[in-house]
Computed example of a mutant assay.
Amino acid sequence: MNQTSTDQSVETQVREQLAELLKGGFAPNVILLREFDYRKAGILLDGLHFSAWILLGHIQARHQTLLNFMKAPGAHPNVWPDAHWPENHVPESDQEWQQAIDRYEEDLQEMIRLVEDPETQLFEVQGNGKTRSWAAMTTLHHTGYHIGQLKTIGRQLGVW
């Protein structure tokens, strides 16, 4: 096997692994969010400044920023702006909760399509020094951190 085919094989493997992890690996984030009872999504536990609803809004905002960079890096170089923390900590209805999850899932699917597309230059360094693969991995890290918090909140509230 020559170096070019080895490089392509490694890149294919990286794309597949990134896509799998973005989906949530063994614990898909979308399933976890759908299981969360929206009536408990607005509860602020003692000692926390966020509810599950606030976490979902924060995850979505950061995810959207990173997705925009992946779609058009030159137009969206600011990949780590100040954190968006929604002020409203309670979803108004199950419909609002589900629509927020739908938007998150749509953005996630779009990011996965970009990662899987061999035309997407995952490793090309952009003007801000970042790559699309960095944005995908940052999404994994950031979302995983906050999904862990959401899971802990859910356990404290008896969701699971």
Rank of each mutant, 00 (worst) to 15 (best):
T6D: 04
E105P: 14
M70C: 15
D46W: 06
L44C: 08
P77A: 02
G154M: 01
V14R: 05
V14F: 07
V14G: 01
D46K: 15
G154S: 01
N68C: 04
G25Q: 08
H141R: 14
L66E: 12
Q99M: 12
G144H: 04
L108H: 10
I147C: 00
K23V: 06
K151E: 00
L44G: 06
L45I: 10
I31Q: 07
N78D: 13
L66I: 10
H142C: 03
L44I: 15
T4P: 03
E96S: 12
D94N: 12
A72S: 15
H58W: 08
Q3G: 00
E87C: 08
D82F: 09
F69N: 14
T143G: 01
E116I: 05
G24C: 06
S5E: 12
V79N: 07
M70Y: 13
K130A: 10
L21K: 11
P91T: 06
N68T: 10
V159L: 01
E92I: 12
L44E: 09
K130H: 09
W80T: 15
P91S: 11
T143Y: 00
A72K: 14
M70S: 15
G57A: 04
I147F: 06
S93W: 08
M1E: 05
G158H: 07
Q95V: 14
F123M: 09
L45Y: 08
R103H: 11
W97D: 11
P91M: 11
N2W: 02
L33P: 02
Q156M: 11
I31D: 05
Q60M: 10
L56Q: 04
F123T: 08
L67N: 15
K23F: 03
L33W: 02
L157P: 00
M137L: 13
Q149F: 00
L18P: 10
I112C: 12
Q126F: 04
T152Y: 00
F36I: 02
I59Y: 01
D102A: 11
P91V: 03
P77F: 05
S51N: 05
F50G: 02
T65F: 02
L33H: 01
D7W: 09
P91H: 11
T143S: 04
L21F: 14
M137I: 08
P28S: 02
I31K: 08
E35D: 08
L33R: 02
M137E: 09
R132W: 06
H84P: 03
W85Q: 13
L33I: 00
T12R: 15
Q98S: 11
D7P: 03
E35F: 00
I59V: 14
A61V: 06
G129K: 06
D82S: 09
A135F: 14
H142M: 02
Y104W: 12
Y145Q: 05
G158W: 08
P81W: 01
H142D: 07
P81F: 00
I101V: 13
E106T: 14
E11K: 13
R15S: 09
L22T: 03
T138Y: 07
P28T: 01
L150T: 01
T138R: 15
V79W: 10
E110N: 14
E106N: 13
